[in-house]
Design a protein around this nucleic acid. Structure first.
Length: 241
DNA sequence: CCGGTTGTTCAGCG
DNA sequence: GCGCTGAACAACCG
């Protein structure tokens, strides 16, 4: 389900519950009693984390690989966490949920989130300098450098910038690195807009595709990186630096 | 029914 | 203590 842009859409859809008081709580979440009667101060996101802010603490929802949510709707299954308001419900299924105590600004570095207004590509570059021998297929999954980036964004952005996924980050020419950093953000917002309109898949150029749309060369598909994730690339137009 | 997956954490080992 | 590996977890689709 999630990559950063989908969580950004969740925040938009949840916004009507901002400033509302939690009337009752359902689900398996063990600290659910702590939420009853509390007013939601607002919602935030950090990469793939969805954050429900209360006074003094925050509920962190992570949808992982299979998680889902329903707004003003029930699936019939027990949610991990289900919030009921005077009007409406917000349900999370198959999610990992924890409570964060204290100030979020002490917990999160917002500048690593490629969709944040605080996104700072210079900070990312400084971190990449320390790991020049790491291939891009691993680098792009590092949530402490590129919060919100997942396997779709990885595949699409490397294709769009014509960079071979096995290129080591230190071997990238400066202008290509800059282009990559820029497109991670650009593509994430395009992803968000497409997902909102339910037309994300139709815009996939590399992910799960068979043929390169640029030169009609068949895509290579390999399991790459520490996480052995599906990687699609064109050996003709994606340059190995 | 089986295999695959837009993700992360942790135990176990050398 | 480190890095690496595999397992574990979750739910839905084709």
């Amino acid at each position: 389900m999630p990559e950063g842009p989908k969580i950004a859409v969740l925040k938009e859809l949840a916004e009507p519950f901002s400033r509302q008081v939690v009337a009752s709580v359902a689900g398996n979440f063990k600290d659910k009693n702590k939420l009853v009667g509390q007013k939601i101060l607002g919602f935030k996101t950090w990469g793939k984390h969805f954050l429900i802010c209360f006074k003094g603490f925050t509920v962190r929802v992570h949808l992982m690989l299979f998680g889902s949510y329903l707004i003003n709707e029930e699936s019939g299954k027990t949610p991990t966490l289900g919030l009921t308001f005077k009007k409406g419900t917000l349900n999370f299924y198959a999610s990992k949920i924890i409570i964060l105590e204290g100030d979020l600004d002490d917990i999160y570095d917002w500048s690593t989130d490629v969709m944040s207004e605080d996104w700072d590509p210079k900070a990312a570059k400084a971190k990449l300098k320390a790991i020049p021998n790491t291939p891009l297929y691993d680098v792009l999954f590092d949530q402490d450098i590129f919060s919100g980036v997942g396997n779709i964004i990885k595949n699409e952005v490397l294709f769009r910038t014509k960079i071979h996924p096995a290129t080591k980050v230190g071997d990238l020419p400066t202008d290509k690195l800059n282009e990559l950093l820029k497109d991670l953000r650009t593509y994430s917002f395009e992803f968000q807009a497409w997902f909102r309109n339910d037309e994300l898949k139709k815009h996939w150029q590399a992910y799960k595709q068979k043929t390169c749309p640029r030169d009609k060369n068949p895509f290579k598909e390999e399991r790459m990186g520490k996480q052995k994730r599906r990687t699609f690339f064109c050996e003709k137009c994606q340059v190995f630096y």
